[in-house]
Design a protein around this nucleic acid. Structure first.
Lengths: 313, 313
DNA sequence: ATGAGGGCATAAGCTGGCTTTATGGGCGGC
DNA sequence: GCCGCCCATAAAGCCAGCTTATGCCCTCAT
């Protein structure tokens, strides 16, 4: 990719060095602690460093950002107006880091884990980290291991006893498994904001969609299955790509319209890198299911996790 | 550490040292570059470091996470299955960092900026960074400055010529300003998952809500205005707190039900730290508006930014 | 008023991690 | 069979951040 397109799809190219403009995680955590505790010293103690270290770190963060973040007084430190804003933005980074950590830990704990989960890619990517975080909050001692794969792989791991609980997103429940629907996922049509469709007044009709070449996942993927079923097997590929990320990148760069899970494009929609094209006549819904070997109702940690997955989309 | 409440509200206490378990931003950016370019060397070049540095950095990241991330071959490097997952999680962190950066830059550029924005806190916190990111993608040379305050402050800055474009979330448009609605915000009732309301079968009736002491923002805040208006001035405070963050923290810790903008609690709902209580009979909506001095239709950069704010919630 | 305590800033020295430069070893294409 | 691309390893340098050691300021209580 030339990297010439205006879109900075994923942290690319120009002005590289985000790391030099954004404080590191330690500093952000420290800032959150200061905000919460109202004192550099206390924040330092909680973070496990000394007060001068905290002082210096906050100061260099202020220098880096070019903004005063905290008002120091002999009675403590409170956030500046700008500091409050920065702290809120920082919290988002830290939360993303916590999700990362929860996921990474599950990837590593392959042995001696009390709960072994197998999940499809979409669920593992977008939903599981938050569930793991919630589980950790409720049952801090539950070690979880995670294996991601397609529906067939999930079923196999469950049936062979290598996993205790699975999550799949296909249309049908694999044989030999019991299931419960935990959420519904919606597939949406998206384009770059510059695409003609982005300025349509009328919703897109199903046959128009079927007649247009689309950026799609490869045949056999869950996403593709649902789309083909809804359109009667007619979806025309413009390109076929093997990962959600690749599809997103292609759509952002303006290659054409794409069909993706709404879970996958939240950020892109919010940042206006992609726009959703309303559909008419079809709703591309699919169920997300928790699955387990027939008869073996989840117990213990598996039941705990299952309980957390109900409710939020 | 008390650590009694299950919730780790914002990266608090136990197991502190997220920074030691999550690779730093530079490493994550490098990983994204490797994923995109398929080669350590190319990724190194793009990131502005040498190939051995990249090699070492990826390797230490793998050591830190305890998982192999890339498959090296003499023809290049591709991501492992686990690596693909980790990369997707990493992308979320990097995206949050990009939003942080966009916001921080606007906070700093106070001088010589071509577009001066004034915004209410909620908008500045949750929406503006993404808009700024989108604006940067379309008009990379537009320097933006940002000032956050309440509606009155926004109006004042606009009328005094200190700002070119404003964003407010109140019920009414301040006098002297023209406005356009750019989105609607919904206030929702939330509690900790352990709260009795979280297990209600029936939606909450308006008079029940009015009769229950709630965790609220202080009187005079936009949120409070809308709630009071919807309930007929009846909302009973259990506690009054001066920031959205404080309200969230209190709700997460189980202090009681809170009423908050849905923009503010996305993460908490996803991670099940809070649950939404369905309401019946009232819809707590409020308009988010872009505002400018009467007659002075936004032009140039202000118009560009305004164009980006339409559509997504 | 006066002393104790909590809070922040500064200075100096050290350590560790990341980088760079320099090389070596595979694999594939021309 | 030579050249180019790609990755790994080794040695040495640089910078950032931490710690220990003080000093000053403010407030509150005696």
């Amino acid at each position: 990719m030339g990297g010439d397109t205006a879109g900075a799809a994923d942290g690319s190219t120009i002005g590289a060095g985000l790391a030099h403009r954004v404080p590191d995680l330690g500093a952000l955590e420290l800032l959150l602690a200061v905000a919460r505790l109202g004192s550099l010293g206390r924040a330092a103690r909680e973070t496990g460093i000394t007060q001068p270290a905290a002082s210096s770190r906050i100061r260099s963060m202020e220098r880096q950002l070019g903004v005063a973040l905290v008002d120091r007084s002999p009675r403590g430190s409170r956030l500046t107006d700008a500091g409050a804003l920065v702290t809120d933005w920082a919290r988002r980074i830290v939360e993303a880091a916590e999700a990362f950590d929860a996921g990474a830990q599950a990837l590593r704990d392959r042995r001696d884990s009390r709960l072994r989960v197998a999940a499809s890619m979409t669920i593992a990517e977008y939903l599981l980290p938050n569930w793991l975080l919630a589980l950790r909050a409720e049952r801090p001692d539950t070690a979880v291991s995670l294996h991601a794969g397609n529906s067939a792989a999930v079923a196999e791991r469950l049936l062979s006893g290598e996993a205790d609980l699975g999550f799949v997103e296909g249309l049908a429940v694999p044989p030999g498994l019991d299931a419960t629907v935990i959420a519904r996922d919606r597939l949406i049509v998206v384009t770059a904001p510059a695409h003609p469709w982005a300025r349509r007044a009328k919703p897109l009709a199903a046959d128009e969609l079927a007649a247009t070449p689309l950026i799609l996942r490869e045949r056999g993927s869950g996403t593709r299955q649902v789309l083909d079923a809804a359109l009667g097997g007619l979806a025309r590929p413009l390109i076929e790509l093997s990962s959600t990320t690749a599809v997103k990148a292609a759509a952002v760069s303006g290659a054409g319209p794409a069909v993706l899970s709404e879970l996958a494009v939240g950020e892109e929609l919010a940042a206006r890198r992609l726009v959703e094209i309303p559909l008419e006549g079809v709703t591309l819904r699919r169920d997300l299911r928790a699955v387990w070997p027939t008869g073996h109702r989840p117990v213990g940690p598996a039941r705990d996790l299952l309980g957390l997955t109900r409710g939020p989309a």
